[in-house]
């Protein structure tokens, strides 16, 4: 196991390129449209779960209402593209920014509050957003949803098949991973992680915790908004029934099963959960029971998830005494 880890570490770049090449070539092997749709789903949830991981995994704020930001992004894109003749791309960014603003607003009351209050408020806010989407007839079409959302066009190239959307989702996932990777490995990411590990100490070192948390929240919400916009033009029809709390829990289960606090974790989680969804289709509703059981099992035996950051507070708060060779206990006699 350790050897494998070392090997991966040594050849990181090569492995990444291999995986990427695989992801690009793989769907061209002539799959059915429905199979490609599954790949699209997986990629979509990779970004979505990844953006939740930014808040849950990196700054340790357990947000449970990620479906709300997803909803905001999807509705923003749907409303604007069906009413005005505009290109999709600026709207996508706008949807992200709008979701980020909503995220900022939600995070305001949580500055003064800790852990659990944040979870409850995000949960509540997600419900409020859904209720608004369901009942604001004139803007969102109420329970009928919004139909006929136009396909995006990129310089005359229309995204009209699942395969094309596959590459769009892949592109967004890659951009997301690239940007997140850079942010995490900078001063900003370090300040997020310091808040997760020990807020008191972070404050004593001059980390502006409230600002950092808000930025973290907005950053996560931004990507959820973007993926929401793409989702809206992908399925061409949205209604509020998609964005329930269960959807939020679904996203969360990917993050938890895959692993919190690493960029790889949510990717694995998305593959595992969506893969299981397909494999377990024959057992019908029982598969949701399976996920729930899987989450509990995960919490019992590997709270940081399959690929999670094992050296973090997410892993259960106990320092595992490993002989690292360098740290030697001083044997002293008084």
């Amino acid at each position: 196991m350790n050897r494998l880890k070392e090997y991966v570490k040594k050849n990181q770049k090569m492995i990444l390129i291999l995986i990427l090449a695989f992801a690009v070539v793989f769907p061209l092997l002539g799959f059915e449209k429905s199979t490609i749709r599954i790949f699209c789903r997986i990629l979509m949830y990779m970004t979505l779960a990844g953006s939740l991981n930014i808040t849950n995994g990196y700054s340790g704020q357990t947000s449970l209402g990620h479906a709300g930001f997803f909803c905001v992004g999807a509705y923003t894109a749907a409303i604007i593209t069906t009413r005005f003749e505009v290109s999709f791309w600026p709207i996508m960014i706008l949807a992200g920014i709008f979701a980020a603003v909503v995220g900022l607003i939600i995070s305001v009351p949580t500055i003064r509050l800790k852990g659990i209050y944040l979870s409850i408020i995000t949960l509540g806010a997600s419900e409020v957003i859904r209720i608004l989407a369901l009942n604001w007839q004139s803007l969102t079409g109420g329970s009928f949803g919004i139909k006929g959302i136009p396909r995006p066009v990129f310089f005359g190239f229309e995204f009209d098949s699942p395969l094309k959307f596959y590459y769009l989702f892949l592109g967004i996932a890659l951009i997301f991973l690239f940007v997140s990777h850079r942010v995490i490995n900078s001063r900003v990411g370090r300040s997020w992680m310091s808040i997760r590990e020990n807020e008191l100490a972070a404050k004593s070192l001059g980390v502006e915790c409230s600002a950092a948390k808000m930025m973290n929240f907005a950053f996560g919400a931004f990507w959820a908004g973007i993926i929401g916009a793409v989702y809206a033009v992908y399925v061409q029809y949205i209604d509020s029934a998609v964005f329930t709390l269960d959807e939020g829990f679904n996203i969360m289960s990917m993050v938890i099963i895959g692993g919190q606090g690493t960029l790889v974790g949510p990717l694995v989680g998305s593959v595992v959960v969506n893969g299981l969804t397909e494999v377990l289709r024959p057992i019908g509703v029982w598969r949701f029971v399976m996920y729930a059981a899987l989450i509990i099992v995960m919490m019992w035996f590997r709270p940081q998830g399959l690929m999670g950051a094992s050296n973090s507070i997410l892993a259960g708060g106990k320092v595992k005494m490993k002989a690292t060779g360098k740290a030697k206990r001083k044997e002293t006699t008084p």
Partner: peptide, 23 residues
């Protein structure tokens, strides 16, 4: 109040938070 799960170097790097201004 250490960041127990970070290496000593990372701990000290977070200490440099104030001296830097990356956005």
């Amino acid at each position: 109040q250490l960041f127990q799960f970070m290496s000593v170097l990372e701990n000290v790097k977070i200490g440099c938070h104030m001296g830097t201004k990356t956005k």
